[in-house]
Nucleic acid binder design. Structure first.
Lengths: 122, 122
DNA sequence: ATATATACATAGAAATCTTATGTATATAAA
DNA sequence: TTTATATACATAAGATTTCTATGTATATAT
């Protein structure tokens, strides 16, 4: 446990920049996977970013609960190997919303690149 | 004043995503302009993003003060047209830090694009 | 005259994420 | 066989950032 926490502290990059992007990330992952459970999402994010972004429990679960409360996600529970899994999937509203969120993210990246000179202005 | 606020409310896109990027944006603007004052930064951000990102006073000034307190910015005041201007410029530490922040931003954008499928995974 | 633009500043509220903590089972390693 | 690690969920308290609202003051355009 101790070692584990240390490793995390040194691995985790500055997640500050990811603030506000979590809901979009979750919705997008669920748009390309019929259903996922929380822990699975954590691992997926970790593998996609090669360990650079580590989704914390304290951020993920409240975010999932909020998206469900907003009607964007639906859930179903299942017991696997004696452990509970809570599967999340996009609702109809969720499928609409992910399109909007992705467009917002594109605009955001575009503007950020302009502001930081990370792209030729054309 | 009223009309002005309304216009702002309807123009401003979801700035949620920009959380955490403000310091990097400020430092980068100052790395390509010898010195800038607060209001000038606001206008610059507005023009670069074609009005999509509107930097609020309540975010900008505290952020400038914090960067100064951290020793990344230096200031000099000047009176122009009977109005006070407080010019900010990068300190030596600031010039080093902007390099780090820009690299973090590049990594962030790269990872976000991977997570949102906004780029071929190659 | 009045509204708008310029120019700074700060306090309180809202939102998000981190840290810390809790419960519980399965499996690999010492 | 004890210990650590991985799996799987959850929440409360604190930190940080940004937004909203408010304040002061001058210049300029209508």
């Amino acid at each position: 446990m101790y070692i584990c926490n240390y490793v995390y502290l040194y691995m985790a990059i500055n997640n500050e920049l990811f603030k506000g992007t979590l809901q979009t990330i979750i919705l997008n992952l669920l748009s390309e996977n019929e259903r996922m459970y929380g822990y699975e999402i954590t691992q997926k994010v970790k593998s996609i970013t090669q360990g650079e972004l580590l989704l914390k429990d304290g951020a993920l679960y409240p975010s999932l609960h909020k998206l469900e409360a907003e009607g964007l996600l639906e859930t179903s529970t299942q017991i696997v190997d004696n452990r509970l899994r809570k599967y999340y999937s996009l609702s109809q509203d969720g499928e609409k919303e992910v399109v909007n969120k992705l467009q917002e993210a594109r605009d955001f990246i575009q503007n950020l690149q302009l502001l930081l000179n990370l792209k030729p202005t054309i």
